[in-house]
């Protein structure tokens, strides 16, 4: 049978669909009304669960960037990106590999800070390179930027002191290198 022998059915395999790790998708979209609704609507109707979502402008005013994280242990990322590509306003999608990208998140923590606790909180803040951005009689607001894990760690340090409120931006990311 000659060349046909080179492809044997028993040698055909499918690639794994679940990666088992967290993915950061960086999505460039046209800056038009309703685009975010299209993206988030797609996720809800296909049953994909977004962990974090951040939207903002890019260097080109006609283009916005949506950065979202989702769990590749639950969702086939390949299917998610293919569905996203079907949206006409989606220009480019990049699945940010952890080794080839920089991902950061910012958080604000309002911590109850009685006089006797303040020194310790300030010390934690220094260790984590966080900043005290508001001080009042009963509370401090601390701003911290870093990787998802760093912010989780910082939160767990602050929590015993009485975490009154917190807000996190969700991760934003850029690929390393010049392209």
């Amino acid at each position: 049978m000659g060349a046909a022998d080179m492809v044997r059915l028993e040698d055909l395999h499918v690639s794994r669909t679940l990666s088992g790790r967290k993915h950061v998708l960086s999505i460039l979209v046209e800056n038009r009304p309703g685009v975010l609704a299209r993206v988030s609507g797609l996720f809800s109707r296909r049953g994909f669960n977004i962990d974090t979502l951040a939207v903002g402008p890019t260097e080109d005013p006609a283009i916005s960037r949506i950065t979202l994280t989702l769990d590749g242990a639950v969702h086939p990322i390949d299917q998610v990106t293919k569905q996203l590509h079907k949206l006409i306003n989606v220009l480019k999608i990049r699945d940010m590999e952890p080794d080839d990208s920089v991902a950061r998140e910012m958080a604000l923590f309002k911590v109850s800070a009685a006089v006797e606790n303040r020194a310790e909180i300030v010390q934690f803040a220094e260790i984590f390179r966080a900043k005290i951005v508001d001080v009042s009689r009963r509370a401090l607001i601390v701003e911290v930027t870093g990787s998802h894990d760093k912010i989780e760690a910082f939160e767990s340090m602050l929590r015993p002191h009485g975490l009154l409120e917190m807000v996190r931006t969700g991760e934003v990311a850029l690929a390393r290198g010049g392209d």
Partner: peptide
């Protein structure tokens, strides 16, 4: 492309 491997993985 989104139909491929949506329900049944394609070899």
């Amino acid at each position: 492309p989104a139909e491929i491997s949506k329900n049944v993985p394609a070899h």
